[in-house]
């Protein structure tokens, strides 16, 4: 069987869509963060796939991915810290409870 680019791109797109779906439907803030991680990772995966199959002569996509992973880790760290703060105030991590400010 010939493994072409499509075999890698389809899972990546499924990950992205699953991430968006999870971000819209999930109620728990940690689950929202996991959905965001899925989206970021699918973008990283895309970079690696395109680099490997379309431009094998260079490393630009892979280097970009390394930086993107580091950035994603920083984002998660800050978001978790804020969620901990909210948990101390509300004793809950449900996103529905964070609705004091509206419209």
């Amino acid at each position: 069987m010939d493994l072409n680019m499509l075999w890698y791109l389809v899972p990546s797109v499924i990950m992205f869509v699953a991430g968006v779906y999870g971000f819209v439907t999930r109620k728990n803030m940690i689950a929202l963060l996991i959905s965001l991680e899925l989206m970021l990772n699918s973008a990283d995966l895309n970079f690696v796939i395109f680099n490997r199959f379309l431009y094998p002569g260079s490393m630009e996509g892979m280097v970009f991915t390394l930086f993107a992973i580091a950035i994603a880790a920083a984002e998660t760290a800050i978001a978790i810290a804020i969620i901990v703060n909210i948990y101390r105030k509300l004793h809950s991590t449900e996103i529905d409870e964070v609705d004091k400010m509206k419209y």
Partner: peptide, 8 residues
Amino acid sequence: YESNEAAI
């Protein structure tokens, strides 16, 4: 509390 809600 509002500051945290805004931040999340």
